[in-house]
Design a binder for these strands. Sequence first.
DNA 1: ACAACATATGAATAACTGTTCATATATTAT
DNA 2: ATAATATATGAACAGTTATTCATATGTTGT
Lengths: 126, 126
Amino acid sequence: MSEEKELQCAECPHHIECGGKNIELVKRLADKMITEEEAYFVSELFKALSDMTRVRILFCLLGGEMCVCDIQELVGVSQSAVSHQLRTLKQAGLVKYRREGKSLYYSIADGHVSTMLATGLEHISE
Amino acid sequence: MSEEKELQCAECPHHIECGGKNIELVKRLADKMITEEEAYFVSELFKALSDMTRVRILFCLLGGEMCVCDIQELVGVSQSAVSHQLRTLKQAGLVKYRREGKSLYYSIADGHVSTMLATGLEHISE
DNA sequence: ACAACATATGAATAACTGTTCATATATTAT
DNA sequence: ATAATATATGAACAGTTATTCATATGTTGT
């Protein structure tokens, strides 16, 4: 079996004919591709950032840790909605919390969060 | 009307009673909050990064510009699916393309893309 | 003009997501 | 113990999304 053969996609054998194909590039990248697992986790991470309410919550928290009712007030959505979204953000490792009395204080989990948000903001304002 | 009053959420007046509330923080941040419009655009941007197939496509393109059939081969999904996802990435300003003969060569639109992907990868591997 | 190729697009469908509503849990004060 | 507060959670519903299939568009060679 030739090396070119190995590069074929089983379902779509016709595209071996593509004149534009960069065989060398494809061969070189085939090994270095992100794994399915990594791609999955990365996409799940960005999925947590893909909702307007969650983005607004994170921007609140960039100003400092705060309890759920503070967030509720700043973002202006129901307590239940905030709580559900905080859960999503927590599962994605974007926020953490600590309990103090009856209140839970949420905060940004690490520096990656502000980097991603800042880069996203830069991107949309160009 | 007192300043505290202004901070109340119309739908949920009860949370003025929250003992954990950080009124000073909320007052300070209320003005500096991200606008609804900005939050919407940022969330739309991350939505474009929130799919495994699109993430894999972008990682391909980090290796260099390539035509649709190259991407199809590396990612292993149908031509139609690749094309639909490239459209989403294009609309989000994450990729661009140029035509050369029958082929369209796609590439990463700007530096923000690799920054966001790299930060995302860092985040999930901790 | 015609055939082949490379890619895009629209419709349809199955799977997923965010909110709301009702209720549960945990903490504190009485 | 009981009531009140702060937050979480499960179910349900409406809206959204990714893929597939069929077809359309644009380009090249004959």
